[in-house]
Amino acid sequence: MLINIVNTLRAFIQDASVLVVVITFFITWIGCWLPIATVIAMTINWRPPQSLQPEQKLPLLVPLYLLAPLVLWGFIWLSHKSFADYGLVVNASLLGSLALGFGLGVISLAIMFTGQLWLGWCYLEKSNIKLIPSMLPSILLIALLVGGIEELVFRGFLLTELQRDYSVWVAGAISSVIFALLHLVWEQKETKPQIPGLWLMGMMLVVARIADGGGLGMAWGLHAALVWAIATVDTAQLITYTGKAGEWWTGKNKKPLAGAAGIICVLGTGLILWLWSAYSLPIP
């Protein structure tokens, strides 16, 4: 009986269209998470459509992210593929690419904030710098988890599957739209102004995978660095905006991806990655 069910599922996954496979994955992922989320929501006294507080969001996010590799492993097993097919190969090269991407992400944001400080758009709360060491390990761990899982799902599984029917750029554009829109699930008011920036970030991370020869290490490191740096700045309240520049420059609701400065930062980083791929690796 069990063998027949497995064979039926394998036939379904292997013969299904790209769209069906992608939809099935996301439905399965969310379906596995919902019972857990329901119990957690009851425990933390959260009822939709109430707004989620920062301390309520983390308990809901962690199981969602931890389930993703397990669900993806099921799809991989049924389709006779491997994580390597989606760009994840655990070796020394992965660690090197991760470190390189992380460094590039930190430097790009450092340049952006330094430029804003120099222009007088904001100033540094020096007294809050002492808060960074205590929060560094936890934020870094979360950033690596979020960056790794999202890259495995969006630039790994989703991008690779879409490339069965589309060119890498069309597949990248579609996967980036899905990546951007799914952020609306958690914070609609703050996320809406960031949608164009999130789409561009997704495309930048597609270029990062190309620059890494199809691996996810550089995209993972870059994504984790952006999450880590922005979360650290927000949590420690390191930056205070002076109001000399409008929100369309600095970012609505203090979100860099909702402003021109953040967009320029993403485009600049994407250009560096593009040149990297153009001079060292063939572009599919």
Rank of each mutant, 00 (worst) to 15 (best):
R155C: 05
I195C: 08
T240K: 12
E150N: 03
N128W: 07
T232G: 09
W220H: 10
H223T: 06
C122L: 11
V89R: 12
L281H: 14
F179W: 07
W77I: 01
Q163S: 11
L52P: 05
L100P: 01
P63L: 04
V207N: 00
T8E: 12
D165E: 15
R10G: 15
L117A: 12
A260D: 04
L216W: 03
V177E: 06
L257Q: 10
A245Y: 07
P284D: 01
K255I: 07
D15A: 14
L238S: 11
C122D: 07
I230L: 14
D15H: 14
I132Q: 01
L273K: 06
F25R: 03
I264H: 07
A208W: 03
M42N: 13
P196L: 09
L205S: 08
G270I: 03
L273R: 02
S108T: 15
L72F: 06
A143V: 08
L226K: 05
S127H: 13
I13D: 07
Q53L: 15
L61R: 12
A229M: 15
W274D: 06
C122I: 08
L67E: 07
F25T: 04
G214N: 03
A110R: 02
A225W: 08
P48W: 01
W220Y: 11
T235C: 04
P54W: 03
G120A: 05
P48V: 05
A143Q: 03
A208S: 10
P282G: 13
F154C: 09
W33C: 08
S82M: 00
L70R: 09
V266H: 05
K255A: 10
A229I: 13
T235W: 06
L216A: 04
L100N: 06
V146H: 06
I3V: 14
V233F: 08
E151G: 05
F12D: 11
P48A: 02
T43E: 12
Q50N: 15
I13N: 02
L271V: 12
A245M: 10
A41Y: 02
I5M: 11
N91I: 04
S280H: 09
V206S: 03
K189C: 01
F154Y: 13
L119G: 07
W46V: 01
G31E: 05
W274C: 06
G215S: 15
P256C: 01
D85C: 06
M1L: 14
L144T: 02
E161S: 08
P59M: 02
S82L: 04
I36G: 02
D234P: 08
L70W: 12
A211G: 06
E190H: 10
S79W: 08
W121Q: 10
A11K: 13
L52K: 03
A261G: 10
G246R: 11
V89S: 11
K244T: 15
L78F: 05
W121A: 15
H223C: 10
L2E: 14
L222H: 06
